[in-house]
Each structure stands twice: as structure tokens, then as C-alpha cells.
Amino acid sequence: MIAVLGLIVGVVAGLLVRPEVPAVVEPYLPIAVVAALDAVFGGLRAMLDGIFDDKVFVVSFLSNVVVAALIVFLGDKLGVGAQLSTGVVVVLGIRIFSNAAAIRRHVFRA
């Protein structure tokens, strides 16, 4: 419950504050958000599986974000930033879909 509240508060705060995204962070933010979404879906699935652990969630969340940003950074340095970030998004999207499928099976039994 508290977690859901945290998400809602975060969205509302982001919409209200509307901070200017620093130029340094700008290219990494979308990928980081997608990676974090992946982590959240993974965590939700783990919870439904009854194997949720907050420590794992924290680590996976942060490492996901960091690794995604790192990949984008590396891609930019190598000159393949666009392709690499597309790849990251594709991979993360597949994972999100599979996690969502598992969650669906738990929730709807279908």
C-alpha cells in the first residue's frame, strides 16, 4: 500500500514540480525509467510468487537503472547510442511483457 502511494506521490510530484531535466541526465532518463519499470514488474511478479524480498528489489532496481544508463553512455561514446538504446528498450520491453504475463496468470488465472 505504502509502495503504491509512493508511486502515486512520485508521479504527482513530478507533474507538479516539473523540473528542468539537466542536460547531462537527459539522454539516460528514459532508459532508466524503462529499466526501473522492468524492476518494478519483476518485483510485483516476485510478490505474487511469494518470494519477494526488499533487499533484492532495491539492488535489482538500482542496478537496472545504473546498467541501463551505462549502456546508453557507452553507446553514445561508441557512436551507436541510438541502436544500443533501442536494443535495451527492446530487451526490457520483452522482460516487462513476460513479467506482465506471469502477473496476469496470477491475478486472472489465465
Partner: peptide, 16 residues
């Protein structure tokens, strides 16, 4: 802890 992380996620999402 999860709330804090989700707050960050929501914030980043909204900002983006």
C-alpha cells in the same frame, strides 16, 4: 524502501 524507489520511478516517469 519500495515506496521510496517507486517514488523515484514515478517522479522520473512524470518528468520524462
Amino acid at each position: 524502501i519500495v515506496a521510496v524507489l517507486l517514488f523515484g520511478l514515478g517522479f522520473g516517469l512524470a518528468v520524462q
